[in-house]
Amino acid sequence: MRRIALIALPYLWLLALFFVPFLIVLKISLSDTALAIPPYAPTLDLSEGWAGIRDWWSGLDFENYVFLTTDSLYWKAYLSSLKIAVISTAITLLVGYPIAYGMSRARDEWRPTLLMLVILPFWTSFLIRVYAWKAILAQEGFLNQVLIGLGVISEPLTILNTNTAVYIGIVYTYLPFMVLPLYAALEKLDDSLLEAAEDLGCTRMKAFWLITIPLSMQGIVAGSFLVFIPVMGEFVIPTLLGGSDTLMIGKVLWEEFFSNRDWPVASAVAIVLLAILIFPIVLFLKNEEKQWESDT
C-alpha cells in the first residue's frame, strides 16, 4: 500500500501540474475566440447536464490549427526558433565544454568553488541579469564604451535589439545547464584512459577526440537538450534583448495571447510547440535511461 502511495504521489503531481493544464490548453485550442469573459467559446456549462456537454463538444474544431498553416508567420517563427535554438545550443556547447573540462581537471580542493561560481548567477533574478545585459550591450553601453576607449572601434556597435544580443543572452543564461551535466560526465573520466590512448600512439588532440568526447557524449547530449528544449520556447530574452524582427515562437505565442487576445490560436501555437518538442524530450529521456543503465 505504502509503495503504491509512494509511486502514486509523483503521478498525481504530474497529473495536476502537467496533464490537466495540458488538457485545458488543448480544449481552448479547439475553441473559437469570442468577445466574452473568458475570451473564447464554447465554454463547458455543466449545469445544463448532458445537453451542455453535447453543445460544448460539437462546438470544438481544428480551425485554429488549419489557420496556423495558412499564415506563413507561424512556420517561419517555428523555423526561426529552431534555428536560434540549434545555433545557441551549439555555441553554449562550444563555450561550456572547455569550462566543464577545466573544472573537471582542476585540483580537487578547487572544484567545489568552481562549481559554486557556475551556479552563482542563479542567486540573482534572471530578469535582472538580462536587464544588465541591456546596459552592457546598448549603444552607449559598457561594451561599446570599453571598445571605443581601447580604440578597437570608432563607431559604437549595434548589438542590442539584434539577434546577436539574443544569442549572447541565451548562451549566458543557459550556460550552467550545459556546464553541469558536462562536468558530471567529465569528472568521471579516468585520467589513465587518456594516458593509455597516448601510450598507444595518440597525440593529445587525437586522444581528446577518440576518448574524451565519446565518453562525455551523454553529458553533451543531456546538456544540449537541457538548453535546446527551453530555448525553443524562450520569450523573455528575445523580448528584452532582441529587436522587433527577432522572430521566436515564444514571442509569437505571447503576442497571440496578450496583444491579439486570441487565446484559441495561442493555445494551438503552444500545442504545436509541445508536439515539436516531444521528439527531443523523448530522445533526452532515452539518453538519461541509457546513462542510468551504464551507471549501474
Binding site: 508567420l73 522587433s244 524582427d245 527577432t246 522572430l247 496583444s259 487576445r261
Partner: peptide
C-alpha cells in the same frame, strides 16, 4: 469585430517582425 481584429493584429505582428 473578432475576425477583422485577428487580421489587424496578425498584420501588425508581421509588420513588426519584418518578415
Amino acid at each position: 469585430d473578432a475576425k477583422i481584429q485577428r487580421v489587424v493584429t496578425r498584420l501588425w505582428t508581421t509588420i513588426k517582425s519584418g518578415t
